[in-house]
Simulated assay, not measured.
Amino acid sequence: MMTNLFSSFDPSTNILNLSLNWLSTMIGIFLIPMSYWFIPSRFNLLWIKIMLTLHKEFKTLLGSYNYKGSTFMFVSLFSLILFNNFMGLFPYIYTSSSHLSMTLSLALPLWLSFMLYGWINNTQHMFAHLVPQGTPSILMPFMVCIETISNMIRPGTLAIRLAANMIAGHLLLTLLGNTGPMMNSSMISILIIIQILLLMLEFAVSIIQSYVFAILSTLYSSEVI
């Protein structure tokens, strides 16, 4: 039972003996150059508008210290995670963003680069962040420990939040789908409606989680400047 349940989240799961599941992560990058040869459609114009809106929001979060092009990294991060989350909604396609090997490889280098930049260029500013303003003197040692720990677990929380949210909905869909053969015809129609509603919820979760990942990465970067 457990093997069948988690087999859809196994990167080594293959179709016709071809291990193509990890390829779904890069399909979007392969398709991007082709879009430059097409006349912009309504979908392209909508996507450009979404990217511009995100650019303005990330620019506001970065504040007055943002550099030209600094928001492109976070907009690209949002696009990559969103595409991978959507790919997982299709049958027989492995959701790469539900694995910690994928989410940690996104979160850890980002956090590490922010920390190196902050401690090398703004050391005094980083030390000031360890003690919030207005902290009583007796609590300062404890606040330094708490702030240090909360800073250290940031890449883990980013990665686990994305992976757990993506795998939870898919597991629920799988569990409900496995009960189908044991139901009568009237209950199956109710099950299909529930599955459709859960799929719509997963669609919304895919957008929200990619947005949360990009927003938190932007906020972490704004703290080190």
Rank of each mutant, 00 (worst) to 15 (best):
F78M: 11
G88Q: 02
K56A: 12
E57R: 14
N66T: 09
V75Q: 03
F90A: 15
F86I: 09
L80K: 04
L54I: 11
F74A: 14
L77F: 12
I81V: 15
T95A: 08
S76F: 12
F74P: 06
F74S: 12
F83M: 12
K56E: 08
L62W: 03
L54C: 10
H55K: 08
L77S: 07
K68G: 05
F74Q: 13
N84A: 11
E57N: 13
Y65F: 08
M87R: 07
L82F: 09
F90P: 00
K56Q: 11
L61K: 14
V75A: 04
N84W: 08
E57A: 13
S79P: 00
F83K: 12
T60I: 14
G88S: 05
N84I: 14
S79G: 11
F72D: 14
H55E: 13
I81A: 10
V75C: 09
G63M: 08
T95W: 00
Y92E: 13
L54Q: 10
T71N: 01
L80H: 06
S76H: 05
V75W: 03
K56C: 06
L89T: 06
F83L: 11
F86P: 00
F86D: 00
L54E: 13
P91M: 08
G69N: 06
F90K: 09
L77M: 14
L89A: 06
L54N: 07
F72V: 15
I93N: 11
F78A: 12
K56T: 11
N84L: 09
K68Y: 10
G63D: 04
G63V: 06
L61Q: 13
F86S: 00
E57V: 15
F72W: 15
N84K: 04
G63A: 08
G69M: 07
Y92L: 10
K59G: 10
S79R: 07
F86H: 02
L80A: 05
F90H: 03
M87F: 09
S64Y: 10
Y92H: 10
M87C: 12
G88K: 04
H55V: 01
G88W: 02
K68V: 12
K68M: 08
L80I: 15
V75R: 01
F90R: 05
V75H: 01
L82G: 03
F90D: 08
M73K: 07
K68T: 13
N66G: 10
G88Y: 01
